[in-house]
C-alpha cells in the first residue's frame, strides 16, 4: 500500500465524472472513449468533428497536467513491445466487441445503473485481476 494516493484519486475521478456530465449535457453523448475513438474508423457525415475534438482535449488536458506539475511517478522502462502490441490488440478487439471500456461501461454505464455495463465492468475487472495474478505469479 506504499503508493496509495486517495486525494489525487478522488479529485481526478471527480474531473472524469464532470467531463462525462459536460459531454452528455452539451452534446448528448456518452463519454465512452473506445466508442468515441473507434467511431472514427467508420465515419458518418458530420460525426467526426466532435470525436476529434474530444481526443484533442484528452491530449491537451493530460499533457498540460503532466508537463506543468512535478512528476508524480517514474515512467516504466524496458517493458516488452510484444506485450504492448498483444495488449493493444486485445483491448481494441475487446472494447469494440463488448461496446465499451472503463469509461463507457465502468463510469457512464454504472452511473446509469445499466445492467449491461455492470456485467461488463465486473467481467473486465475480473479478467484484468486474473491476468495480473498469472503474469506476476508464473
Amino acid at each position: 500500500m506504499e503508493s496509495y494516493t486517495p486525494y489525487s484519486a478522488l479529485i481526478g475521478g471527480a474531473f472524469i465524472g464532470l467531463a462525462a456530465v459536460v459531454l452528455l449535457w452539451c452534446n448528448g453523448r456518452i463519454a465512452g472513449i473506445s466508442g468515441i475513438v473507434s467511431g472514427l474508423l467508420q465515419p458518418a457525415k458530420g460525426d467526426s468533428g466532435w470525436r476529434i475534438c474530444f481526443i484533442l482535449g484528452l491530449l491537451i488536458g493530460a499533457a498540460c497536467y503532466l508537463w506543468l506539475t512535478p512528476p508524480a511517478f517514474e515512467p516504466r522502462t524496458g517493458f516488452s513491445n510484444i506485450k504492448l502490441i498483444v495488449a493493444g490488440l486485445l483491448v481494441g478487439i475487446g472494447t469494440s466487441l463488448g461496446s465499451g471500456c472503463t469509461s463507457g461501461h465502468g463510469v457512464c454505464g454504472v452511473s446509469r445503473l445499466s445492467i449491461r455495463s455492470i456485467i461488463a465492468t465486473v467481467t473486465f475487472l475480473g479478467t484484468g485481476m486474473l491476468t495480473v495474478y498469472f503474469l506476476t505469479k508464473f
Binding site: I33, S34, V37, I55, L58, L59, G61, A62, F79, K83, L84, V86, A87, G88, L89, L90, V91, G92, I93, G94, T95, S96, L97, G98, S99, C101, T102, S103, H105, R116, I119, A120, T121, T123, F124, L125, G126, T127, G128, M129, L130, T131, V132, L135
Partner: peptide
C-alpha cells in the same frame, strides 16, 4: 459479445496496464 468482449478487454488491460482513455491521454 458483451461478456467475451469485456473479458478480452480485461486481459489486455491487465497485460499492459492501459485502457483506451489513459493510453491516448
Amino acid at each position: 459479445k458483451l461478456v467475451c468482449g469485456a473479458a478480452l478487454f480485461g486481459i489486455g488491460w491487465g497485460m499492459a496496464g492501459y485502457c483506451p482513455g489513459p493510453a491516448i491521454s
